[in-house]
Simulated assay, not measured.
Amino acid sequence: MQIQEKIAVVGGGSWATALVKILSENGAEVNWWLRSPEDVAHLQQYAHNPRYLSGVRFDLDYVKPSTDLAETVAKADWVILAVPAAFVQQALTPLAQDAFKGKTLVSAVKGMIPVQNILITDYLGEQYGVPAEHQCVIAGPCHAEEVALEKQSYLTIGSHDIVRAEQFCRLLRNRYVKANPLDDIDGVEYCAVLKNIIALACGIAHGLNYGDNFQAVMVSNAMTEIEDFLHAIMPLPRNLTGSAYLGDLLVTAYSQFSRNRTFGNMIGRGYTVKSAQFEMNMVAEGYYAVQSIYELNKRLQVDMPITTAVYHILYERFSPALEIDILKDKFK
């Protein structure tokens, strides 16, 4: 399928790599920004990412790696952000404020801007003047590792402009990826943030030797927590059993590929935050997200026991065993 679209992908991690695979194999020209000159040189010579999903080979007639962010963005009609939320501001610093004018921005980021505690889409609107209707959000349930293996995967594209969301869905669909549009961009984006926090809690419980029975109860209680938060911050009629909500939560809470679950598991087994981050050498978005949600909830006053427990463990160094023990009595 020859799409002949020009797309920029910003980021060199596993999810960026998976998206480049999907888009380039569908015939799009993908201008791919990576921070490391060594990684760009490796891609140009060997046609694979040396750090992530290294088994994926790229057709360099379609994939153009570069360290020049401004040039990469300038060439594209669609710009996909796929860097950790904590580094979005730093990554975009070289760009002029009008760099995204006339382009569609697609966030593949599953987090929030720290300190400001705002969604990526809100940041792009405030900092770069990107209209809300020119933005989309990629939601799961989908892990990059399964995309690399070409296992059946599902994506939801959220946008205020449902036509634009459908256009991007067409760029993604292939024999193993199904993509559907949704007009609840804010709910999808907040849910993507919250599910990482829940996955941390599930990992912590697993690290403390709690079993599947307890995790199932935690996830079911988490849906109430997510629903209450979404209603407080962005009230809309939503079916939270949909794949962009419940589905994304389940895959993040249970999958062997979930870095948030892995990070939480290490904390439950006794690792410090720094030692877990060092050993993983990957960013668990939930670590930063829980602080943002906790701060936002000081104003909203939603009952969020799982989020509060994770915040206490990661930021106030409360005992993981004690916090999970307290949660036991709050669950129904």
Rank of each mutant, 00 (worst) to 15 (best):
I306P: 00
N213M: 15
T17P: 02
R299A: 15
L246E: 06
Y311V: 09
E133P: 04
V88A: 06
I22K: 01
A74Q: 14
A232C: 15
V137E: 01
W33L: 10
A276T: 09
S220N: 15
A192L: 03
N209I: 08
A41W: 14
K328W: 09
V217K: 08
G125I: 11
I198L: 14
E316C: 10
A74K: 13
P181K: 02
V177R: 02
E126V: 09
Y123R: 03
C169M: 06
A28Y: 00
D61I: 10
M266K: 14
N260M: 09
L182P: 01
H48A: 10
I233T: 07
P305F: 14
A199M: 10
M266L: 15
G268Q: 14
L23F: 03
Y190N: 08
N221M: 12
I113K: 01
A309H: 06
D77S: 14
P320D: 03
N117Y: 04
Y62K: 13
A8I: 05
K64L: 09
V137G: 03
H134D: 13
T121N: 04
K75Q: 11
A216C: 14
R317M: 13
Q167N: 15
F331W: 08
V40S: 10
I22L: 08
L194T: 01
L182N: 13
K178Q: 12
Y52K: 09
T224S: 08
L155Y: 02
Y123W: 02
R164W: 12
A284H: 05
Y128R: 02
A216S: 15
F87L: 05
M234T: 10
L322T: 09
S54W: 14
R173V: 03
T272I: 10
C136Y: 01
Q215C: 13
T156E: 02
E323Q: 14
R261N: 05
E145A: 05
R299W: 11
A253H: 06
H143P: 06
S24P: 04
L19Q: 02
R299H: 15
F318L: 15
E166M: 10
L194A: 06
E279D: 08
N221I: 00
K151A: 12
E285A: 09
G203L: 09
E285G: 08
V106S: 06
V290C: 07
L322M: 13
D122G: 03
Q215W: 11
H231L: 12
A165L: 06
D248S: 11
F100V: 02
V109I: 12
L124S: 03
G27N: 06
W15T: 00
W32T: 00
T224Y: 11
G247N: 10
Y245Q: 07
V137C: 02
G268F: 12
R259Q: 13
Q135L: 12
D122T: 12
D59H: 11
T67V: 14
T67A: 06
W33D: 04
Q44W: 11
S258I: 00
L194P: 00
V88S: 00
A70E: 12
G242I: 03
G286C: 04
R299N: 12
A205Y: 06
S319A: 11
A244H: 03
T272E: 10
N49G: 09
V177Q: 02
I324C: 07
R238Y: 04
G242L: 15
M112D: 01
E5P: 04
R173H: 07
Y52A: 07
L34H: 04
N221E: 15
I204Q: 03
H42I: 01
